[in-house]
Amino acid sequence: MSTAGHGARQQQEAARRSVEEAERQLAAARAREHAWSAGAAGEEQVANALAGLEQQGWVVLHDVAWPGRPRANLDHVLIGPGGVLVVDTKNWSGTVTAHPDRGLRSNGYRKTKEVQAVQTARQALLHLIPAVSPDIVAGLICLAAQDQEPVRLDGDVLVVGRAQLLQHVLDRPTVLGAQAIMETAMTLRAALTRQPSAHVPAQAGPGRAPRSVAKPRAGSTRSRKRPTRSPRSDIIQLAAIGVFVGAAVLFPEQLMDAYMSLVNAVVAPVAEDIGQNLQDNMVPTTTPAP
């Protein structure tokens, strides 16, 4: 025999788990928003630190496409007398150390993947400019929130603080002339510019004509780009779900009364109007006189 309130307690427990899950997702969304916000702020600070380079014969590219990786980007690419530099900005908090033997660490955790990513980015640039000697293409990690004199890690990745970055770039020995800088910059600018996404036609096989790409008609909803969801909108939606679930647990009767009031206030008048319109539009049938 079931005890009184057993079913309600089960529903309460299920609702409690839903609230906990919503709160967990809300906390995760807030953490992602904070990380992206900190990363954007660090890139802006480094860009400001590099502002004087163009007057010294350098070409500076910010937030460009990563070749072969549609969802990734390169924070900064510099082309100038000192060579070609790909700079990855890290806006880490806490204690950050860089040592030739012990590597790069943040709060005691070794950042091996981050160093390898810079090495991969450097190789991607080398494939784009094969005429340039590999010796003059370098990968840098810039610490936006720490002072750090240049330290070369294993794998030829350099770590430098934001305050020391500009001077390090200007102190590099001259390896490219003005003509080479212009040609290299033009090649990289064209290759690293993000292209709008488009439908790619299927490759034609032997004896097969390539399929044409259908262009969206004017006014067609298929040609509209779906707006990007921001972390803030996810937070608002999760918070709304948590409030609704909490209200359902704490005030079930009040919530049902509010729902029925909404139905009576909105649905019933609409149904009455529809019925009246149908009755008004009915054509009366006439019976011929005998």
Rank of each mutant, 00 (worst) to 15 (best):
G155W: 02
L128D: 06
R105Y: 00
L143A: 00
L153P: 04
L143K: 04
Q123W: 06
A144S: 08
V137C: 12
R152L: 11
A131G: 08
Q116D: 13
L170I: 05
A124K: 09
A121N: 12
T120S: 14
Q164E: 02
D135V: 11
E114M: 11
A124M: 01
Q123P: 04
R162N: 10
R122P: 13
L153H: 00
R105N: 03
Q116V: 06
A124P: 05
P130G: 10
A121P: 08
R110V: 10
Q146W: 09
K113N: 13
D156Y: 07
Q146C: 05
Q164A: 04
G161T: 11
S106H: 10
C142D: 00
V157T: 10
L140M: 08
Q123C: 08
A144W: 02
S133R: 14
V159I: 09
G108A: 05
Q148H: 05
V137F: 01
L140C: 05
R162G: 09
V151T: 12
I136Q: 04
P150Q: 05
G161M: 05
R162W: 00
E114Q: 15
K111T: 03
A144D: 01
A131Q: 14
G108Q: 08
L170D: 03
Q148S: 06
P134D: 07
A145F: 05
R105I: 00
N107C: 07
A131T: 13
K113H: 10
A131E: 13
D156E: 13
L166Y: 11
G139S: 00
H168D: 04
A124G: 09
L170K: 07
V157N: 04
P150L: 04
A117K: 15
D154M: 11
R122Y: 10
V159Y: 02
D135M: 14
S106N: 15
Q148M: 12
P134M: 04
Q164H: 04
Q146D: 09
V137K: 04
L128Q: 15
A144V: 01
L170Y: 03
L158W: 15
A163M: 03
R152F: 02
A138M: 13
T120H: 13
T112R: 14
